[in-house]
């Protein structure tokens, strides 16, 4: 049975009427057309579908949309408009952190939620922060480097 659900998505209010058990991932991708949120596994293991909900990283494939009533959600589509994103994008390019790119939006989200609370993370903190984001191309070191570069260049930004 459908229910009305309200939340804030990328700074804009959203009101939808749908089955509250549907996955947030499907709402974002299918109902709202936000295809930057990727489905890599559908069971919360790979982090490709990561979004920010109330300032924290969450895998949208295991979130029932009925549970995000009143929440504030940021997806890569909202985040990519920020200065912080631009810096992360440049730093990732500089570090060679992007190969096939399927995991990248999720990892950018993980980087943002890390830098937000820890603007100068050490290597361990970076590895912890992206430990729920699988990448099969890079072996991670170049991603870790990308986040380090962003942190160094982004003094005062986070």
């Amino acid at each position: 049975m459908k229910k009305e659900i309200n939340f804030v998505l990328n700074k804009k209010g959203v009101n939808i009427t749908t089955d509250p058990l549907r996955r947030l991932l499907d709402i974002l991708r299918e109902d709202l057309g936000l295809k930057g949120v990727k489905e890599g596994c559908g069971e919360g293991e790979c982090g490709s579908c990561a979004v920010i909900i109330n300032n924290r990283i969450v895998n949208s494939c295991i979130v029932a949309v009925g549970t995000v009533e009143g929440a504030e959600i940021i997806t890569i589509e909202g985040y990519r408009k920020t200065k912080q994103y631009k810096l992360l994008e440049d730093s990732f390019a500089e570090a060679g952190a992007v190969q096939c790119g399927f995991c990248t939006p999720g990892i950018i989200i993980a980087a943002e939620t890390l830098l937000r609370i820890n603007p100068e993370p050490n290597e361990n903190a970076i590895r912890d922060a992206i430990s729920g984001n699988l990448c099969r191309c890079t072996g991670y070191n170049m991603i870790v480097e990308g986040i380090k570069i962003a942190s160094q260049k982004g003094k005062g930004l986070w």
């Binding site: 936000l34 295809k35 994008e89 990732f92 390019a93």
Partner: peptide
């Protein structure tokens, strides 16, 4: 000498279209 990969912006920003998109 390295140059930046040209597909980084669309991939990092989530606008690259994979088949499911």
């Amino acid at each position: 000498i390295p140059i930046k990969k040209s597909d980084v912006p669309e991939k990092a920003g989530g606008s690259a279209k994979y088949i499911a998109d």
